[in-house]
Design a protein around this nucleic acid. Structure first.
Lengths: 232, 232
DNA sequence: TAAAGCAAAAATTTATAAATAATTGTGCGA
DNA sequence: TCGCACAATTATTTATAAATTTTTGCTTTA
């Protein structure tokens, strides 16, 4: 069974603990496991068909990432959401990605600009919803959307910063999931992405950063008002 | 030890997993567990007198924080150090704490300025080394030093950002530990801290940020040259 | 009668020990 | 020297036991 090619696929989740970690994280971010929910080991064990140990290891990882809150001797809970956190996360993302985009543009290469163009093109031709009228999340869109934003800041030259940005994106994704059905298809996010691309290709850092921050702020504003109903 | 523990789970009763997590983290950051070392469960179990489960949970937490690297089915290792990472971490810290300090100063209050003054005073009167001639790390100094820097950016208004800064501080602390004995007492860090304080009290953001970044960059420069010998 | 204080039981989390699965190292034979 | 099988080591998971918190129900008291 263990072929020589297997040892090279180190990034594949080979352990149960990693598998369950990935699944739990996905379920929390999509709010299939809703904010504040208690994560009882019994429930999770039958839900995901795993033993206690790998489950516990997954929960411990998620705890340091703040997707799960662990109360000593009292079990684990899905991290709560709040309007305050939404604002803090958005503000932080605007600051940090603004910084990262500026740096990235300073290190701009032709290859990078081309990669960005391609990423935007993919985003542009991927439908937001699987159905034209009612909203049904298209996982492909999420993927290419994230790829576009990751490419924007990808040349900033700091892996720690990129990791932090990714975490912010994850944490905000959950908020986006909570109110996405309502906001569709009111907003013209396509245009916003195009504008950002234009500014980057024109090498106008100030404009690009401003547009990117505006993009994040607008997203947050829509969610913010929805959250009134969702948290009441 | 100026180690940071998860504020949420530090309540009253500590589980074994948390205890061992804190101890392991401290031992990694002080390089008592040296970079690259393999963390065999057998060894750690007798070293720290705990079972496999809490140990494993601690290692899993440290993995998401990047203090430990987990190779699927092949065990855990203390994260390696490198000159590249030292530079990236320093660059990132300069960017992010520069940002945070600017924000903090914009939100400045009298209470904050007073707290900063006190923090600096404590730092000023705490000796760097326990012995006057040879260097022996004074844990009190580490504590008040970190408190001073934390106060500087404490009013930035973003808990996620503060958390990220804390992580950067932890990761750089390990590099500092590796070369600290040599650099002592060549540098006048006391003066650097005073200068930063003065600029903040004078409400000169530009100057304060520049001095803070210079402070981090100088620290990194000293370590960088030492690292040649330590990694060769 | 209602409320508060205990005590025991139930449920749940945490830890230990045993079993299973995977990887690494070694020696034999081609 | 290379490849293969086999043994030894190590990591992962399951199963079991211990410790802790929460619930429940009884008793006492105002």
């Amino acid at each position: 069974m263990p072929m020589s090619t297997d040892s090279q696929r180190v990034d594949q989740p080979a352990t149960l603990a990693t598998t369950i970690y990935v699944r739990l994280k996905a379920d929390i971010l999509t709010t299939r496991l809703e904010p504040g929910r208690k994560l009882q080991s019994r429930f999770l064990m039958e839900q995901y068909n795993v033993g206690q140990t790998p489950l516990r290891e997954a929960l411990n990882r998620l705890t340091t990432e703040e997707f799960v809150v662990g109360m000593e001797q009292r079990g684990f809970y899905v991290k709560e959401v709040s309007k305050e956190e939404l604002q803090e996360l958005t503000k932080t993302r605007c600051w940090v990605e603004g910084l990262a985009l500026r740096e990235s543009m300073q290190n701009a290469t032709q290859t990078w600009e081309e990669a960005l163009l391609v990423a935007h093109h993919r985003l542009d031709r991927t439908p937001r919803s699987l159905k034209p009228d009612t909203f049904e999340d298209n996982p492909d869109w999420e993927r290419v959307h994230r790829a576009f934003h990751a490419t924007l800041i990808g040349l900033c030259g700091s892996r720690p910063l990129l990791g932090f940005c990714e975490q912010l994106a994850d944490r905000l994704y959950r908020y986006r999931m909570m109110s996405i059905a309502k906001a569709y298809p009111a907003r013209k996010v396509g245009a916003e992405h195009s504008d950002i691309l234009q500014a980057v290709l024109a090498r106008d850092s100030e404009q690009a950063v401003r547009l990117l921050q505006q993009h994040y702020q607008r997203t947050a504003d829509v969610i913010y008002s929805d959250l009134d109903g969702l948290l009441a």
